[in-house]
Every structure is written in C-alpha cells, then in structure tokens.
Design a protein around this nucleic acid. Structure first.
Lengths: 244, 244
DNA sequence: GTTTGTGAAGTTATTCACAGCG
DNA sequence: CGCTGTGAATAACTTCACAAAC
C-alpha cells in the first residue's frame, strides 16, 4: 500500500484507525488462519475466509484492508503472512501476564487453556482462599493464598486479572486487583462489578450466551423473522468506558 | 408476571422487531436487574441502569422501548416487572434442555454453573469418552459414554448442545449432535466448525476475549486514540447464517 | 421537578459494484 | 479471468433533544 495518502510529515505512517466492529472480528479470522496454516493451506481467498467466518466476503476484504493491503489480486491472501499481520495488530507481540483468582473447575480450565498460555499470554500467578487448594500446583505454578495477593503480584505485575471466583468474592477481588495496578479485568463470576472508568472490564457469562441462543430459537419461526436474523457477533459482556 | 397486560386477543400485534444490537444487550440488563431485585431495589432509572451497564442512558431507554413501554415517567422502571419482560422476550419461559459433551474441568464448570441450571435451562445429559469419567455423576446426572449419545438423547432431545471437548473431537461431536436434531451449538473447543447454515452456532473462546483486551491495551496510548475507543459489546465468536 | 419514550439528526457499519492489478 | 481494494450507496445503530406523563 504505502498509499501516498497524506499523513506525510516524515513519510507515510498509515492512516489507521480500525473500526470497533472490525477489531471484534479479527480474532475470528486469526483463529481460522491459524487452522489453515496448521493444515498446510498457503493461500485463501476472501470468499473462503468469509464462508468459514460466516460473514460476507466484502466485509472480510474491508476488514483486512484496514490492516494494509496484503492480498494478491487473482489468488488471495497468503495465510501465514496475513496471520502474522493480524497477530501484530492485536498486540500479540507483547507480553501479557495474567493473574487468575479462583481455581475451582473454571479457573483451572482457564489456567490450563491454550489461550492463556500462548500467543503473548502467560499465566503469572494463581490465587484462591480455599486452604485445600493453596500450595497446590497448576501447570507448574503454585496457588497462593489471596491474602498474599499484593505481595505476590508486586514481583510480576499482571496486565490482566481474571476473576473466576464465586459471585460473592468478585467485587473484593476486583478492588484489590485495581488497587494493585491491573489495567484490565476479565470477569467470569456472575456478578456486575463496579470499577473506575479507566479499567477495561469484560465479562464472560456463559448463561448470557445461552440466553442469546434461546432468544433466537424462540423467534426463529415467527412470521417474517425466519431468514432475517443473522445473529452476529457474539455476545456477552458489558463494556468499558463510554466516551462522554 | 401474570401481568394482565394485553397481548390482546388478536388485535394490535406490536410492530416489534428487536434490533440485533439490542438483543445482545438484553442479557446484560437482565443480569443487572436480577441483582437489583435480589438486593431489594424496587425501581431503577435509565441512567442508573446505564451506568451499571456502562452504556449511554438513551440507549437503555431505546432498547427497553422495543419491548414495550414499561417505565413510569418521573420515577423509572419497576425492576421486577422489567426483569420479567426481558425474561419473556429472551424466551426464558421455555424449556431448554442442554446436552454437554466433554466433562473435563470446563465441562464440569459449565454443568455446575447457575446459568446452565436455571431460568429455563436444564442440563439433560452428559457425555465423555474417558472411561474413568463414564458412570460418574455430576449434579445428580450420570456421565454417559459418547458411544451412547444417539440412544440417550432420543429420550430427552436437547435443544442446545455444548461442546467442551478437546479440539480434535469437536467436529465429530458437532456432526453427531446435528444428526440427532440439535438446533444450536455452543462450542468451547478451540476449533472452527463446519455446520449447515440452519444450525445456530456460537463460539466461546476465552483466548478471543484476551486478545480483544490486548488489542485495547496495546492501543490505548496511541496519539488520538486514547479517549475514543469504547470497546463496545463484547466479542467473541463466529456467527451463524448470513441472510444471502 | 423528574424521567420516560421517541422522532430526527448524526455516526458507524455493511454491502454493492466495479476499476485495477496479477 | 479471478480476486482484491475501495469509493459510493445503503442500512443499522446511537445519540440528541424535547414533548408528554407522572
């Protein structure tokens, strides 16, 4: 590209500002590309990607064009290269230490999951209050008592705090994480949290997913409704910061 | 509930068609209202709801107006009543049997979670292939061997199938679920699935959440970017069906 | 006075449709 | 030819702003 497009000063910095809707789809393309690369597919056209992501092909092309123009007309996109560009854009080259509080089934599943232990993410510390868990190891990391939270995270400050506790403990854990300087929270507890507007807060609520499903199942046969719902995106979560 | 409210006979069907963006926020309001009701709050104004949901107040009012007009000018919304209306709209009065395949940490956490065992949802059967798990009970339900899937679900056909297996097993499980008539899948395995367009497919990918977070953390200090990202919605997942 | 509900205005996202490159 | 990249057209969503209702 190097679209001569303005922004000149000292040569062509990209005019980028990636739309939110696109940002949300990038991880989806990323995952698809990862599978393609692993499966040995070297190039992919926008309409194939679109089919796999279950979106429209021009949307794919538009989305990717915000990153630059990496496609080859006539053949498509180089999977490896495109993946590396998406990774870069998503900040995957960074180091993102993650602290997990709550090591019940869910916390354990998270701490063990690929997503938390690859591509820049790294579980750095684990906490619980349950005496029978404290001292145990998960993936080679010891579970600390929550009482030691401040001390432990001082050594290796997490960027992301994961709350996988029961609802009753969640707000307290959030407060302590924020006080310790954690910039973003991922909350799995079924509890609405109150945090400062500067904190990036995302909820993952498994029941919310179910309810969106039940909504579509309930309505799929209503007259005139049938073909028109294309339940986009996915769902879940409250959101950080309003601009105003 | 048992609101005498209309739905009169056969006059005046509302002109309703709830925008997708609204549908995605309804479960968020729902959860907030549930906490308010439990905490004994009887009424709530749109700007309070908005603050808790971290969205704009007119968005809240507009969203709620698609359900009908249940607010009282001057004081706000009756929490209980509003909650019941959202529940109704989300199809919560239905019966949604859920089959879970894969009872590792994640599957267990799901089967035990409130979201899967309340408000219309009901875990109806559990499956795994691991001999040491088959025959165990989780919340009073026996874990069946996946080999018996077709037989077991014939008795109590699930509306929703949850895939919490390793990636390698996910497509096979999906195929069997679809063949057995399951209308919607919730996939937690890190695998892109191929399913017919009529199947409602949602992905929950914990690493996608992390990556959206890392995107915002990476970009929050770029010049001109700081205040403007209001990372809406939430994100995750591929999507079912395109209309075209 | 307070807060809803909603047209109208403004913004953002999607889709079309085609020129341009390989 | 095939497929990308992108302006222009369309559609969806958000926000404003205020009249009406309590």
């Amino acid at each position: 590209m190097a679209v001569g497009t303005i922004r000149l000063t000292m040569a062509a910095a990209k005019p980028r500002r990636i739309p939110e809707a696109t940002v949300i789809r990038l991880p989806v393309y990323q995952r698809i590309l990862l599978e393609l690369v692993r499966g040995g597919t070297a190039t992919v056209a926008s309409d194939q990607l679109a089919e796999m992501a279950r979106v429209n092909a021009s949307k794919v092309r538009k989305d990717l064009s915000f990153l630059g123009s990496f496609g080859t007309r006539g053949s498509g996109y180089d999977t490896k290269y495109l993946l590396s560009q998406i990774d870069r854009e998503l900040g995957i080259d960074g180091d993102w230490p993650v602290a997990v509080v709550g090591l019940g089934n869910l916390g354990r599943a998270l701490a063990n999951s690929q997503g938390f232990t690859s591509r820049g993410f790294r579980v750095c510390s684990l906490f619980d209050v349950e005496p029978s868990l404290v001292g145990d190891q998960v993936r080679g990391l010891m579970i600390h008592h929550l009482d030691d939270f401040e001390t432990v995270v001082a050594d290796d400050p997490p960027s992301i705090g994961v709350i996988a506790t029961p609802a009753g403990a969640a707000q307290d854990v959030a407060d302590r994480m924020i006080a310790a300087g954690v910039a973003s929270l991922l909350n799995f507890a079924p509890k609405v949290l109150t945090v400062p507007a500067t904190v990036l807060l995302r909820y993952v609520d498994l029941s919310i997913e179910l309810q969106v499903i039940s909504f579509y199942l309930s309505h799929r046969d209503e007259p005139g409704t049938t073909e028109e719902w294309s339940p986009l995106s996915l769902a879940v979560g409250l959101t950080p910061t309003e601009p105003g």
